[in-house]
């Protein structure tokens, strides 16, 4: 009886604790309901906002000034668009939330994969460009095995040192 009780207690604690510790991707809520598709359809390229993907490790997120380049004056009647100008009035950057994240012990360079390796953005980021509202979690959740599979397929190094820092 006692054993069953204790077992139950431990089980509850373990599952609950495990959930708290390992809660994988809580919902990501963006400050503005950004519509990727509209922007792509209007002829913008990924690099228009994620400016540095071709030159650096981090692709980067758009600065407010980048948004204002088009949205200084209203293009639509969307209240979401209005938020951009509200941030501008307050003199704040838009606090975009990070959707795709890297473990701290991994080194990943966008330039290396996209420019030098010729990998399409979609390979890792999925159809984000076709999304009409900000997804709350990444469409593709990459594991190390996914990295390795691709590396093997393309015959590039699988040396741990190449990515682990």
């Amino acid at each position: 009886m006692n054993r069953i009780l204790l077992f139950t207690v431990i089980l509850v604690l373990a599952v609950g604790g495990g959930y708290l510790v390992a809660r994988p991707f809580s919902e990501v809520v963006q400050p503005i309901a950004f519509n990727h598709k509209v922007h792509i359809d209007n002829g913008l390229d990924c690099s228009a906002c994620h400016e540095r993907y071709s030159q650096a490790a981090v692709a980067g997120r758009p600065k407010l000034t980048t948004c204002l380049f088009c949205h200084e004056t209203p293009l639509t009647e969307s209240p979401e668009e209005e938020k951009v100008r509200q941030y501008a009035e307050r003199g704040e950057e838009i606090p975009w939330r990070r959707l795709t994240r890297l473990p701290a012990h991994v080194y990943f360079s966008h330039r290396r994969h996209v420019v030098l390796g010729g990998i399409a953005c979609q390979t890792c980021h999925g159809h984000i460009g076709q999304s009409t509202s900000p997804p709350s979690r990444p469409e593709i959740q990459l594991k190390m095995n996914d990295c390795l599979a691709c590396h093997r397929q393309h015959g590039v190094t699988t040396d741990c040192n190449a990515c682990h820092r």
Partner: peptide, 15 residues
């Protein structure tokens, strides 16, 4: 910890 192709002895912390 292992020796890679370029002769560097690596130390991979997560492992």
């Amino acid at each position: 910890t292992f020796k890679n192709e370029e002769g560097l002895v690596a130390q991979i912390y997560p492992r």
